[in-house]
Design a binder for these strands. Structure first.
Lengths: 201, 201
DNA sequence: ACTGCAACTTGCACTCAGTGCAAGAATAGT
DNA sequence: ACTATTCTTGCACTGAGTGCAAGTTGCAGT
């Protein structure tokens, strides 16, 4: 697996541009008129594409508005966690894992900001967002299951996975509250501290 | 607010029966053929009702399959929590609050069992289920916001709300694993213990 | 028992998200 | 330039979901 990806060809470049154009159009229109008053046809048109093509880029209208994409965890971070590392202490290693996911969670801050703003007024978008987050929690659980062979824990995977999800969300919220400054992962220690504070009560 | 409700009239009885019939039909058909291969028309027909009436009972097909309904928290439990009780210690009071929600979360165990089984094979149902759960987390946060006036906490509402949600889910999972014996709330102490164990690592 | 009213069911027509298919267009490789 | 592969598009369609109005049913009062 080479470290540097080959230069993007015209196809890949166009694909990226079209995707961005669809997200932008979707967010703008929905921001102006609300989710239910904007059709996929309108979004596609605004981006200069057909409705049929829209669905080559996104599984659903909601996905386009949110700019949803899968997060790919760095293979090194993954391998480390699964083999019982990086430090051998579960909470600390969980932080590293969550940081690995947060790293690429917001490639385009403007779009994320807009999406997060729309979440507050559109329940269906919130539902889709939460489903996306839950998918990641599922990935946490799978990784934990694999790690268990190298380093067992007396706590079940469900609970650990949920805590990892909680830390991720808590950090993201704190990051949003800071005006999206720096990295979301920088807020992880404070999320852990909040949790510990609560558990001591 | 009287403690005993008046006897249900024919209308209310019919409403309940029809609702149950729709859930039963939905779960049976989806269990046999999968979510996407069953139409709302088929479900309604199997329950002896029209498609149009189906939507008087459920907002969506997914809701019928899951048998989703709002949980009504007992007014006493609510008032107690909001005024800073019952014990004054946040974690302990959270447990009482979550137990209050769990109390009426599964009025019909058979249906819940069937729904939970379908969750594992139908991503869209999982998404709906998670959204339902997230709605409750939102209610936790509202209650926490109100309680804050009587008894402030150094931990933010988001984090506390998420922990309450985690405890609720953890208890429900343990309850399911036990074969739905007794009450889900009986598993709350063990959920808290797991969390504490993890945080000590 | 009768009556008026409110609540509910149903059929119907419709919208729109989403899907499969095939012809045509665009890109990539030689 | 040629060929193979990938992508776009138009089209037809399905099915979830919605509004509307006519008809039916339950309820309460007389």
């Amino acid at each position: 697996m080479p470290t540097s990806a080959p230069p993007p060809n015209a196809r890949e470049r166009q694909k990226r541009e079209r995707r961005l154009a669809l997200i932008e159009a979707a967010q703008r229109l929905v921001g102006e008129r609300g989710l239910d008053d904007v059709t996929v046809e309108e979004i596609s048109s605004a981006a200069g594409l057909s409705t049929r093509t829209f669905f080559n880029y996104f599984d659903s209208k909601d996905d386009a508005v949110l700019g949803i994409q899968e997060i790919e965890l760095d293979a090194e971070v993954r391998a480390q966690f699964v083999s019982g590392g990086p430090s051998g202490r579960l909470m600390s290693d969980l932080e590293a894992l969550v940081a690995g996911f947060l790293k690429d969670a917001a490639p385009n801050i403007e779009q994320v900001e807009r999406a997060m703003r729309l979440l507050t007024s559109e329940p269906r978008l919130m539902q889709r967002h939460v489903a996306w987050h839950q998918r990641i929690v599922g990935e946490f659980e799978e990784l934990l299951s694999e790690r268990r062979k190298a380093r067992p824990s007396p706590v079940d995977d469900d609970t650990i996975g949920m805590v990892a999800g909680l830390l991720m969300r808590s950090s993201a919220l704190a990051w949003a509250r800071s005006g999206y400054e720096g990295d979301a992962a920088a807020h992880l220690p404070e999320a852990v501290a909040q949790l510990r504070l609560l558990l001591d009560d």
